[in-house]
Computed example of a mutant assay.
Amino acid sequence: MKDHYDIAVVHGDGIGPEVCGATVEVLRAALGPSSPLVFSEHPAGADLFVATGESFPETTFAACRAADAILHGAAGIPGIVHPDGTEAGLDFTLRLRFELDLFANIRPIRLFDGVRSPLAAVKAGDIDYIILRENSEGLYAARGAGAQLRGEVAVDTLVQTRRGVERIVRKAFELARAGKGAPADGVKRVTCCDKANVLRSYAFFRSVFDEVARDYPDIEAEHALVDAMAMHLVLKPGHFNIIVTENMFGDILSDLAAATIGGMGLAPSAEVGLSQGLFQAAHGSAPDIAGKGVANPYGTVLSAASMLEWLGGRHDDARLTEAAKRIRQAVGTAMQEGMLSRDLGGVNSTVEITRALCARLAA
């Protein structure tokens, strides 16, 4: 246990400052006046790029690298791009993933009581699984390294390494072992999602998965092709416990999965390595509603709960793990009682939701 934890806060773009600011308030309420969290704010993002020509200053990177954890709002504004056409604001997340080796992107998918799923006859408790996305390799490892030839041909390379696949698969089995199993049957299972029937890179991913699975005889292991998985997440979401997959597939499937639980506003994300972690909601910067006070803070708040849980586990700090539980309970109670933002079919503002959460945590 440490005396204090340095949290680098990067608000980012669009609704990022609103949801990030709300989350810091919730964290302070959860831990009280003796909170061990020390927050420091640092600039990055598309708006900064417009103002200065730099989207991710070295001073911000150094602060993030030195911090115990990083809390981020949102990044990127459509149309604000580098000369190669890629979004300026995304430099922040992508550089941290690769340079800090945040290889495990943990995206919980849970339907809360009080939130209506677009899936017929699905209720709270029926959807509760994790998409574990390999975060440092796959197709996105080609960012900045692909080739464009004379405006006629463009090539990006999908990269899979034995080390990279093995460690993300082991993470999947460890998460399954520590969890409570799939909602439909209680079975602790890990599903390997790939395209092994067509591409050698995914066949390799599957072969390493099968090797690692033999070390976990207590956990059920299975395979699913990514196109079939897109259907399964709609038709039988209760079957799944932990889904492990390549970088791009995980990115796409987690957005589809978020739609089944009410939308991207309820999609937290933890991106962790062996010693560092980045925590942010999976949604974008939503510039169309920025500054209107209607942004949904739940995804970022739940990401912060994951941050506390991760820090508490690493440092054997029960203060943090207990606060994480209380935050999740407060979120669940608030939504159950109808405290919903507009994207969830409610009428509550960002400030109203934040105050409600803080009041429950202070009680």
Rank of each mutant, 00 (worst) to 15 (best):
M1W: 04
Y5E: 06
A8L: 08
G12R: 14
G14I: 08
C20P: 00
C20A: 15
S35L: 14
P43C: 08
A44C: 09
A44G: 07
D47C: 06
A51L: 11
A51V: 03
E54K: 04
F56M: 09
T60K: 00
G73H: 05
P78E: 01
P83D: 13
D84Q: 03
G85W: 09
T86W: 11
A88N: 10
G89C: 07
D91Y: 06
D91M: 13
D91L: 12
L96R: 07
R107L: 13
A120P: 03
A121H: 15
G125D: 13
R133H: 04
R133P: 08
G138D: 03
G146V: 05
A147S: 12
A154E: 11
A154T: 09
L158P: 00
T161I: 08
R162S: 03
R162V: 06
K171D: 11
L175G: 13
K180D: 14
G181Q: 08
A182R: 01
P183L: 12
C193E: 09
K195G: 08
N197V: 11
N197T: 15
R200M: 15
F205R: 13
F205W: 15
V208E: 04
F209G: 06
V212T: 07
P217M: 10
E220C: 13
A224L: 15
D227T: 09
A228I: 15
L233Y: 09
P237K: 11
N247D: 02
F249Q: 02
I252R: 02
I252A: 05
L256G: 00
A259E: 13
I261K: 05
A267V: 07
S269F: 04
A282C: 07
H283A: 11
I289R: 10
G293Q: 11
V294C: 11
S306D: 13
L308Q: 09
R319K: 09
R326W: 00
R328Q: 15
Q329N: 14
G332P: 04
A334C: 06
M335N: 05
M339Y: 04
D343P: 01
D343H: 01
D343A: 00
I353D: 08
C358E: 04
R360W: 08
